[in-house]
Every structure is written in structure tokens, then in C-alpha cells.
Amino acid sequence: MKLNLKIWRQGGKYKGEFVNYPNLEVNPDMSFLEMLDVLNEELVSKREEPVAFEHDCREGICGTCSLVIDGQAHGPMKGTTTCQVHMRHYHEGETIVIEPFRAQSFPVIKDLVVDRSAFDRIIQSGGYVSVNTGQAQDANAIPIEKEQASHSFDAAACIGCGACVAACPNSSAMLFTSAKVSHLALLPQGLVEHQKRVLAMVAQMDKEGFGKCSNVTACEAECPKEISVENIARMNREYMGAVFASDKKMV
């Protein structure tokens, strides 16, 4: 089938503009990124610079791929990363608009590639358990209720892609940050540092320039791992607890 692409190009000779690529021959079994591969091979054969986009595992787990497709982060399907979108969901003659994730804290590097290193800095500010190699006790010395571990896992499944920020009208990173806060706060291993952690991570999130949360919940709707906004509620509670009822004051 033939499709028309309208792609955001930025850097080099492009100042930041949409460029049309009409009549691309596409096989319905291709993935979305394989379609971009075909476009790029065509551009290279015409001695033109290919469209820069990020990708790696192409099976929905590394979080490298991004793209806003027809206005939606990671495209039209629920719980799916861009690399898992297949062209059989599109029809002959359709026009697809492709843009980078847009947020002040994710500056565009080139075309569809943005800098998401702010997420690394949020984790560095406190998204871990302080345990050195070799300090651990036997793994079964800490029983954890199955359901509790499962809740924690649901939050830990975040792939750090940034779709939540791209989907949010305020470019808020609350879903990403709260997923890490929840993952660790729901486990006994993470409890020791839970207050320090939430304060540090929220402070870093604000410092990076991400917006505030106004309960739009677009983040949950467009999250390819369907991370729940419950995590945001939990982070708010953790944060309030740390600010107003610090464990330290009770000693």
C-alpha cells in the first residue's frame, strides 16, 4: 500500500519544519520503524540526509524509541511502543504526521531525536536503594507479600521512554518519577530511605523544568507500559508525609 508521511525535520538545512514524503510503498506486515528504514534507504539512495530517529531493541522494552504519531505518543494503539506498531493498522493513501516528543526539558537534538537525560538525573537524585555489592542478606530472608511485590512490579515496569511527558499538556514528569518512588516505597528494601528519596527526586524533577501535574491523566493513557496514575497519588502522599510528618521528627 502507499502512504504519505509528514515528518518534522530539524537541524542541518532544516530550521524546524514539516517535510512531506508522499507515496511511500509500505508492506502491511512491516513495523512502523521498518517503514522509516525504507524511507531512509530511499533518501540515502537519492543522496539526501536520512531522518534521524532513535530506536534500539525494537521489541518494546528498551524505551529508546519515541515519536508522536498523529498527535499521540507512540501512536494509536494502547499499551504499545512505536516499534511495536505495525502498518497493518493503516490504510491505503493515509497521511501520517510524525513529530518528536515535545517538552522544554527534552530539547530536540536532530529531527525526531530528543535529549531525555533529565530522567537519568532524576534517578541519580535518589531512585535507588543504598546497598553496596556484597552487603545483602539471603534473598529469602525478606518475605514480601505476593500482591505487594506485584504492585511494586507494575510500577517498576516503566521503560523510561518519556511518553508521559510528551502526552502531558504541562510536560510533567510526575508519572515517571512516581513510578520509581512507588516501585521502591512498596518494598521493605526501599522503606528505609523512602522520605529522603521522594524529597530528592521531586526536587530534581522541578529543577529539570518539568511542569506540574493537573490530573489530566493523558500520561497513563499514552504510557506504553500502562503505568497507573495511582502512582502519582502515592507519590503525593509520600511527599506530604515526608514534608509534614517526617520520621525524623518522631524520634
Binding site: A139, S152, G190
Partner: peptide, 22 residues
């Protein structure tokens, strides 16, 4: 065995049984 201990201490959410053990 040490690897499993280390990972659990870091908060890796391995699958568990109803008794809470791995």
C-alpha cells in the same frame, strides 16, 4: 546465589509465591 541476594536487596521485584518467598 550472591547475585540473587544482591538483586533482591536492590529492590528487584522477582516473582514470589503466596508465602512471600521467591
Amino acid at each position: 546465589g550472591d547475585i540473587i541476594d544482591q538483586c533482591v536487596a536492590q529492590g528487584v521485584p522477582f516473582a514470589r509465591e503466596y508465602g512471600g518467598l521467591l
